[in-house]
């Protein structure tokens, strides 16, 4: 009886600790700046709680045996010859099965929801192959939303606003307006990744991938290349500015009057500097950076960002 009470108390304690950890998990993320972010963070918090419980459970057993089941120094006896217990085996097969399948069901539901809200990639093989997925999101994104063409290069990002004839190396987005990106790459794989949005999509050469989301928080965020793309991969970043639709409108308007100029490309700058510098240290071969795209707005990637 007393053992049962103690065990229950201990499990209760683990549950409390796991719940606390699950709540703590929200703080490990950058700010939530898209409609996908809360969904992802909730799911992660749930899994952190479950994972903490599993981990602490295993750890408890290990600590217990380490504390109470150590052999005395000269004890040469063997332990009790328990060879197994089929009922226990069934229990610990079924419980994890139920847990992970529950997680899977929740995740599939979140996937659906994400699809409805926006991020549903839509792949065009060259010009023709039609979409693999027609989630409701794909069609919802069609009307009243913004379209941006994203071109990922070795090593720069270019954003084109086809409606307004504007291009930039800094991505501006209106708050709370669904946006659909068309992701293309003329050279190698890249990855479109904005941590504050919790979303990521590889950019595959030879395909045009539609990808949509809705920003939900104003601020300045980092867009990072997430699929290794060569020498200047690490520097292939751009800023994403989410602003009110009015501010966005005036930015776009102003931008359309700006003359074309070389956009941001850390790679091109660094390559040029290295070319002027006398060779020192080891440097291995790389393809040269593509010239910086000509854009209306180069923007900046040295301003402080929120995430």
């Amino acid at each position: 009886m007393i053992r049962f009470v103690l065990l229950s108390a201990w499990i209760g304690l683990l549950v409390v600790a796991s719940h606390w950890m699950g709540q703590e998990a929200y703080r490990w993320f950058p700010v939530q700046a898209s409609n996908a972010a809360p969904l992802v963070d909730d799911l992660f918090s749930l899994e952190t709680a479950i994972g903490t419980f599993v981990f602490l459970g295993v750890l408890s057993v290990l600590l217990w045996v380490l504390l109470f089941n150590r052999a005395e120094k000269y004890d040469q006896e063997d332990g009790p010859p328990m060879e197994g217990n089929t009922r226990l085996e069934i229990v610990w097969t079924v419980i994890p099965l139920v847990i992970v399948m529950a997680i899977a069901v929740v995740s599939i539901r979140v996937n659906r929801e994400l699809g409805v809200l926006g991020p549903m990639e839509h792949v065009h093989g060259g010009e023709l192959i039609e979409a693999m997925d027609h989630g409701p999101g794909a069609s919802a994104a069609g009307s009243g939303s913004l379209q941006v063409d994203v071109i990922a290069r070795q090593w720069s990002w270019e954003f084109r606003y086809p409606g307004a004839q504007v291009s930039a190396t800094e991505l501006h987005l209106p708050l709370d307006v669904p946006v659909t990106f068309k992701l293309t790459s003329p050279d190698v794989l890249h990855g479109f990744y904005v941590p504050a949005f919790r979303l990521k999509q590889d950019v595959v050469p030879g395909r045009a991938i539609d990808f949509s989301l809705t920003p939900t928080r104003s601020g300045r965020y980092r867009l990072r290349d997430s699929q290794f793309s060569g020498a200047w991969f690490a520097a292939n970043q751009a800023d994403v500015v989410v602003e009110s639709p009015e501010a966005f409108g005036s930015w776009l308007e102003a931008a359309s009057h700006q003359p074309l100029q070389p956009g941001l490309s850390v790679a091109a700058d660094e390559a040029e500097r290295l070319a002027r510098q006398p060779a020192g240290g080891i440097r291995w071969a790389t393809v040269p950076p593509a010239p910086p795209p000509l854009v209306n707005v180069p923007g900046s990637n040295s301003l402080p960002h929120d995430a």
Partner: peptide, 11 residues
């Protein structure tokens, strides 16, 4: 864990 449980552990 079942193997360790109630055993005579030698560290």
């Amino acid at each position: 864990l079942g193997t360790l449980w109630g055993g005579k552990l030698k560290l």
